[in-house]
């Protein structure tokens, strides 16, 4: 009985996912997944613009990395970044993007990129530098996988440029924006069930 009491009783192991963690992580992921869909549709337009110099499209790629970084920052549980990024990509695949089922793989890889950074700080630190680093991690993961899976026929210097642009985009769009979004959400009081909502200095 003691064990079941601790389910809701004691401060519960902070590593374990509560139901509210799962549902809120899912909602964030699904909402960002819808955003992915719009972002992917926008990509069709952007890529027309960057057609003169396709590696520039890397600058746009940060949008696909938000789910992992944001989910990780809010939920603060091991696996949150991967879970959110994968679920978001599933949703966008279900709605229909140009990458179909293969986004599952991309999602997992990008999620791992962000997750590794959070793991590096042992799931203890959640400040701006960590958020930016997580964005960078996700950006690098994205660049490497994209270069192998889709840009394979580009020559090497273009691949390197793509990696650079994707990293910048990851830091700014996924890292900075997610951090700002987390802070904004905390300020509304909606994250009161999460450490993110209590420790943010608002």
């Amino acid at each position: 009985m003691a064990s079941s009491t601790s389910l809701r009783g004691a401060p519960a192991s902070t590593r374990q996912w509560r139901v509210v963690d799962i549902v809120v992580a899912s909602v964030i992921a699904v909402a960002v997944g819808v955003l992915f869909f719009a972002w992917s549709a926008g990509y069709s337009g952007i890529s027309v613009l960057t057609a003169g110099f396709p590696p520039l499209a890397g600058l746009y790629s940060g949008g696909w990395l938000i789910a992992g970084v944001l989910g990780g920052l809010i939920i603060r549980k091991p696996g949150a970044a991967i879970y959110c990024e994968v679920l978001a990509s599933v949703v966008s695949a279900l709605i229909g993007t140009q990458w179909g089922v293969s986004v599952l793989l991309s999602g997992a890889i990008q999620g791992i990129g962000a997750e590794l950074v959070f793991l590096l700080f042992l799931y203890r630190k959640w400040n701006l530098p960590v958020a930016l680093l997580a964005g960078l991690g996700a950006g690098l993961a994205l660049a490497i996988s994209e270069n192998i899976l889709y840009n394979a026929l580009w020559s090497i210097e273009f691949k390197l440029l793509y990696t650079l642009f994707a990293s910048i985009s990851g830091v700014v769009i996924a890292g900075l924006l997610s951090w700002l979004a987390m802070r904004g959400l905390a300020r509304t009081g909606v994250l009161s069930a999460f450490a993110a909502g209590r420790t943010a200095d608002v």
Binding site: S40, S44, S47, V48, P54, L153, W154
Partner: peptide, 14 residues
């Protein structure tokens, strides 16, 4: 559109 653009980009950079 995406497929078309992807094709074009590769033709340019390959």
């Amino acid at each position: 559109i995406a497929a078309g653009v992807g094709a074009y980009g590769t033709a340019l950079l390959a």
